[in-house]
Amino acid sequence: MTTVATETKTLERDADGHIKNISDWNEQIANALALEEGIPVLTERHWAVINFMRKEFQEKGDAPSIRRLTKESGVETKELYALFPKGPAKKAAKIAGLPKPKGCI
């Protein structure tokens, strides 16, 4: 874990702490970023959200809104907030190696 944590330190980040180059991202880095956000272990449910976000980002060029997450990721609002406390859209985007979502919803 120490080596991965060190690895995330050398990654280029934006002002919000999101990694700048999507190509830098891999699953190990996701685990380290999750740890930074206070999520010790990424479960299958976390991955369902992260993978949905990455797919949406690739297709549409922006991370999905909380509404689209709720409606289409297969994970409902309550669970989203339980999985990613204090801001699911923002946190999941960060762990997924994506920029902060631009939408208001």
């Binding site: 809104s65 909380i66 509404r67 689209r68 709720t70 409902e76 609002t77 309550k78 907030y81 939408g103 208001c104 919803i105």
Partner: peptide, 18 residues
């Protein structure tokens, strides 16, 4: 188009968000 839900859905979403 902006993903802003109808009032009822929005109220549910906001309440579920805590």
């Amino acid at each position: 188009k902006l993903d802003i839900p109808p009032v009822r859905e929005f109220i549910t979403m906001i309440h579920d968000a805590g």
